[in-house]
Each structure stands twice: as structure tokens, then as C-alpha cells.
Amino acid sequence: MKEAHHKADEKTYKFGMVIDLDKCTGCGACMVACMAENNLPFRKDNSDRLRSNLWMRVYKISNGRSFPDLDISFIPRPCQHCEGHGHHAATPCVSVCPATATDYSHETGIVSQVYTRCFGCRYCMAACPYHVRVFNWWDPTWPKGMSKYLNPDVSVRMRGVVEKCSFCYHRYQRAKNKAYAEERRELHEDEYQTACTQACPAGAITFGDLKNPEHKVYKLKKSPYAFRLLEKLGTNPKIYYVSTRDWVRKAGDVYLGKEGKDVTHA
């Protein structure tokens, strides 16, 4: 599906998520929904996370205490679709890609990945502090018959290129095409939702336009319990998290968490 043509008076968005960690149960439905939606490959042995290909990864983090004081939280981590600001007016990964194979869209705020352009230098992976980007260490293959379920809206990636969460960009394209056909300029909140948001049984993920006061994310991100991962680095991510547990917020915000006495987790 191809993008409708740009107009000068293009409606712009800043899509992002607010993920409620109090609700997230670590069930993993978002991970599987993402894999199914975006034609992610799988292998007979996927147990090596360092080479596994997950666009959405749910981290299991702990407060580092001993039995029975241990506490655990789950942190679903799609691409943070960083915007960058201040000195770093550019997305960490986008600014380094030598072949312009990944780009920041000012129309949507989405950080794209063009697989057929990427030549696999992996510089973008080194640039991303969230371990979002994954490399195709193998040719993708499907057991006989399995390729039947592949989604034609998303191209299958070849080995040797980097990929990552696209905010299910093809869904935006579909929604936008539909809106254009109906001579609308603006998408409704529920018209464009990502696969992980839709799947989440806990309703922990809310997706929408962060700058549109009508959208749920607009209000949710203002929660006193909201935070972003590695806020201090200035990556300016578009994924907000909400947790009422102090240690969780600190774990997300503070690099390495060993900064000083204000950090409770080990």
C-alpha cells in the first residue's frame, strides 16, 4: 500500500504512546501481535535474546531486593520514536544512518525504517540506547505453508538489514488513504491504532496524537506518575510510561540507577 501524495497543507501529528505499567501484566500479547502483524521471522531456537528479532520487547525488571521484598515490574518497549531536542535536534538513530535508510517524519513523528535502503552497517543500533533496533542475522524463512499468514501490507525483510517497530506505519497509511477517499484531512483517534495497542488485554497501551488535546494520550502523559525512559539523555521519546511505584519510575529515568542515595533499586 502506498502513501497518498503529500499536500502543502498536510495535517501533521505527533503519534505516541502512554503505557500504564500498573496495568501491564507482562503477558506478552503485544509482542506476539506485533510479530503477527509485521511479518517477523522466527527460528527453531529463538532463545538467544541477543540475536532475537522482537520489535516489541517486554522487559521484566526488579527492585533488586531479596526474598520476600523483591518486586517486579514489566516494561513493554517498542521503538521510542525519539524526536531529540535542544543540542540534539535529531533522532539518535536517524542522524547517524549514512544511507538515509531511517528517517524522522515530521508529518507523523514516526521514525521509519526503509529495509530496501538499509545496507546493514548497524551504526543506528549503536546509536540507540534502548536496544530497539535489531539486525537480521539470518535469512528469514517460514516452514512450509506458514507464509500463508503473512501480511501483505508489510514487506518481508531480507537478511543483513536492520529493522524495528514502525508504529505499524502501514496502518497509518491505510487509515490515511481511507480518510482521503472520504475527503477528510484528519484521522480519528480510533482509526489508526497499532497492533500491540489493539491486542493488549490489559488496555495498558494507549496510542494517539500526543499534541491533540482530544486524544487520550494527551491527558494521560500529564499524569504525575508519568515518565520516559532515559529522559536525561535528551532523546525526547514519544513513549510515556506510568507507574505509581517509585522504584519503577526511577529505574526508567536514571541511567544505571547507581547515581546516589535517591535511588532505591539496586
Partner: peptide, 13 residues
């Protein structure tokens, strides 16, 4: 109501 679990989401496999 719209939710699904990982097993259900992988049903096509």
C-alpha cells in the same frame, strides 16, 4: 472485549 492473549494471537501458526 477486543483483548487477546499471546497464544490466541499466534493461532495462525
Amino acid at each position: 472485549d477486543g483483548g487477546i492473549c499471546p497464544l490466541g494471537a499466534a493461532g495462525l501458526q
